[in-house]
Design a protein around this nucleic acid. Structure first.
Lengths: 190, 190
DNA sequence: GTCTATAACTCGATAGAC
DNA sequence: GTCTATCGAGTTATAGAC
């Protein structure tokens, strides 16, 4: 049992607070007192506010990569992977969803510290799902299906966070899964 | 030719500036000088900063509703509607996309002034596409297909804004369209 | 590593003349 | 409607003792 470095403890707490209250409207003062430290310690451990944000994104990216690796270490079937991927996203939607889209909007505006998030959310996820789909269809088709599967997950998550209709979200994901399944089956029969 | 009210001119310019630079890191000072007015005028015409943001969202919502009404006044076919909807989204992606997701994240955090955006982006769009799909399939299925079609549009837009790969985005949208088409055809034959 | 104190600055909002 | 000037609160960041 190695005791975790204080920096990492603070970082985890900061992610939790940002997830609940948003990044924009959280000052270092508010964050510090809310997670039981001082503004001075945030500067000491992370540097500037933007450096802290970079650290937050870095750990979010690392978590996403770890989850992705874990998923495909256990699962080969792209449909099962898609199902688990969506389940995990929906389960953490309430807590992490808004932060996810908020940080993504930083990446869209070209903030350098957020570039890694854009990369893992699209390229890295697409690559992983492409490999899985390549076991059941040709590689060009696998690329498209990978993108589509992830787009549905992200789009449905987006809707879920705006209207809270979980059954409708599940139904949309299931509908896509079934359509892709029959499409691949009919292609294999052909 | 009625000369437009100065308030509306300022509002349009504000939307443009926010779209390019983001809402978060734009102060009233910066916004005012950038669009050729003074901080005083922003307060005079809109009230507080949050009131201005509410006005921005209000006009974005109005534009979305107008575009939706225009679309379904011209088109009944859900596939053609989906195609045009995606084309319009992709065309304005570079300019309006980041603002769209940024304002949506405000709605996700429960900001009251942003509630209307969440409603129009999900419920209102789903309702319009549901009606279109109801002309080619049963109403329960139409609801699911409407949500799925919109989710793909939003998810693919999300990816496009993060990696800029327009051909890949188009391919994913086309793939879904074709899958839905064959699904409905096979159901009608059955 | 942690604390208190404060510097230096920017923010939203307002005052009041014109 | 538009201007300049400014208030008071809040912000990031730093200083320096312990």
């Amino acid at each position: 049992m190695s005791s975790p470095r204080p920096r990492d403890v603070l970082l985890a707490k900061a992610v939790g607070y940002y997830a609940e209250h948003g990044v924009r409207d959280t000052s270092l003062r508010t964050l510090a007192t809310s997670i039981g430290t001082s503004q001075r310690m945030l500067h000491y451990h992370f540097g500037s506010r933007e450096d802290l944000l970079a650290a937050v994104i870095e750990i979010v990216v690392a978590d996403q990569i770890a989850a992705l690796d874990r998923l495909f270490a256990e699962v080969d079937d792209p449909f099962e992977a898609g199902r688990r991927n969506w389940e995990a996203a929906a389960a953490s939607a309430q807590t992490f969803g808004p932060l996810f889209f908020e940080l993504a909007s930083h990446a869209m505006h070209g903030r350098p510290y957020a570039a890694g998030l854009g990369e893992v959310v699209v390229a890295r996820h697409v690559a992983a799902f492409r490999r899985a789909f390549a076991t059941v269809t040709d590689s060009g088709h696998a690329e498209v299906l990978a993108r589509l599967t992830l787009a549905v997950g992200q789009g449905v998550l987006f809707q879920l966070l705006l209207d809270g209709d979980r059954p409708a979200a599940d139904a949309a994901v299931d509908e896509l899964t079934e359509m892709v399944r029959t499409r691949i089956e009919s292609a294999n029969v052909r």
